[in-house]
Design a protein around this nucleic acid. Structure first.
Lengths: 206, 206, 206, 206
DNA sequence: GATGAATGAGGTTTCATTCAT
DNA sequence: TATGAATGAAACCTCATTCAT
């Protein structure tokens, strides 16, 4: 029942996220946000210290959710290449599911967020770093277990994988052109499957 | 010696590109640009209709150069997997070379440009589409020649490859965090080599 | 006592009208208006969309008042030349009274307004057209009643009368030279009387 | 033969007059004038000290021509009411002919000029005063000759006549609404005839 | 005579933010 | 909690004018 009545603060955050994702930080004015929220401009400043501060808060909650999704999918046990593939696939399903359920946040993270402000840029880099680290550890472990060669190239390889995944998520959700109205045309399972295969075997892979 | 004297127009474009790449479109004021350029604000408006118009011009010339680099590296003859790998490697070398010589433009293209203005967003999407198309045609041809399976998955695969390359270039040039001051630590040839291998054989590849 | 406190919006409109009447639209800067109004420049833009928009509003309210004055004085019954003269005289008294009580608006309407902007020009033409039409109908009626000859020359005659009246009002209020400081030296009744006589009998008239 | 080659100076004056008459002083930028004239902006300032100065010059030459037209039509001998009417008619024919041959100047004088600048306003008032004076002297003479009554009302009567004529010329040339594209629909002789009759006998006149 | 380029001063408008209630 | 009204700072842009050739 408390769910029914949204307090102004949440409405503002919601509208701001949507507008940022649609038009970007700088093209979204505080006046736009309050117009959408149906409250007065002064009310915005009663709830938040500043536009930047509210944006920071927006990112923080998104970041928590995303890091949770990344960690949730992570499974430690690996004994064979098949295991690796299955693990990665499961992990990707969690990540893709989260992404498709957080379109606005992903839009910010993947495209519209950068250039808003040094503070925001740092926040975005933080989220991305978390994703990258997760992948790097995974690969490192596989190398340690003797399932992948070349210990010294782990960073580069992790970068490859990371950008394949990140970029593909953006494309999957928004198409080329970062169009918020775009609708994904591939199922989560299918995409996770193909991505995992590409990660391990490339274009020529089985 | 005539090379020494740069005309104001070019100086403005240069400064603007650098500032945009550093701070982003919205945080770069016309007053910043002219201060750097050493001319009066009115002079800016003698040379360009508006800030947006100048930015459009900036993108157009960058786009021309980049598309030229993409096309230059493209080689048609393919007879074996080895050929494919060699071709891709050569193509990547051209692309990476261009990218490292056009750091500011790449920064705009890969991160700082989005959200500037719908007009600019469209321009960026255009450049990216050119890169994607080039890759897609390449893969399509390989499939036609029987060197890759799965004609129906070409789009998805092209997206994988495209984002691997684009994202990796950004990481190579600017590190995680899109830091303009970052210096690439891998040689062009080496990176091209590894990228090509990853593209065709994935993490497990030879 | 509540009359004492004028809200900012009205103060701005009042100052703007006065300044426009004094210096004209283009030589009156928004900064002049707010200086006189005693508020900040941004306050102006909180109350009005733009300088032009505010001017439009100014004209609209003036127009309403003036049209009301024109209609108020209009009386239908006419049975003799004496009636016509009396009617016209009464109508002129209302009009002249309004004009002398709306000096600033009249200044704009008769001289300072034109050339401000196509939009404003159209508004002015509208007010003038209302005055002209009122006169034309009057004359037309008189012709119909057989009190004036020449049905086909009504437009020209109405134009004569219209410009006699309009021009004379300007001269009466501001002298030759459109001087805002000028003070009318003829009583309303007297002027109305002479004007009406001139209208019907010309210079030679009794 | 010298007529064929217009020197830049005259071209500028011509274009300026046309533009002023069309858009008004303030909405006509120096850049507009030189664009129409086909010369560079600096050329304008080689020929004229300033925009205002050029405008002053424009008015001066127009003023000379107009005053000449006013004086030309003036005839002294008056012996009867018929003479007065004939004289006035002849004078009006000269004036209307001049006006129709100087549309742009008339547009400035009658509507678009006011509010340009105090200096210009004064110039316009000067031209108008010349016209008014001419009329006043005429009436005064008629009164002296016993052809019109009421010596003490000469000023008011002159004002009536003056505004009838001035306003009607504007209406004849440009219609209501000061439209430069408007075409007069009455012949000079016809209008002069009706105007003179109205002046002396009013609406009821023969 | 003429001009491409440049500019100082200032214009309108925007916008994040605060004040008073 | 909430808001109508107000505002300082600064943004983009304009325009009459001048400089150097």
């Amino acid at each position: 029942m408390s769910k029914e009545i949204k307090d102004t603060r949440d409405v503002i955050l919601e509208c701001a996220l949507r507008l940022f994702a649609t038009k970007g930080y700088h093209l979204t004015k505080v006046s736009d946000i309050v117009r959408e929220s149906g409250c007065a401009q002064a009310t915005f400043y009663w709830h938040f210290k500043s536009k930047l501060d509210m944006t920071r808060e927006l990112f923080e909650s998104g970041q928590h959710a995303m890091v949770a999704a990344i960690d949730r999918g992570y499974r430690a046990h690996v004994a064979s290449t098949e295991d690796m593939l299955a693990n990665t696939r499961a992990w990707l399903i969690d990540l893709l599911t989260f992404a498709s359920e957080s379109r606005y946040f992903m839009a910010l993270l993947l495209a519209k967020g950068y250039g808003a402000d040094p503070v925001i840029d740092t926040a975005i880099s933080g989220v991305r770093a978390a994703l990258y680290e997760s992948l790097r550890r995974n690969i490192e472990q596989a190398v340690t277990l003797g399932m992948l060669r070349d210990l010294d190239k782990v960073d580069v390889r992790a970068a490859f994988v990371y950008h394949t995944i990140e970029g593909t998520i953006g494309w999957w959700l928004f198409g080329h052109g970062h169009d918020l109205a775009h609708q994904p045309s591939i199922e989560v399972q299918d995409l996770a499957d193909q991505l995992a295969r590409y990660e391990f075997f490339g274009l020529t892979g089985k």
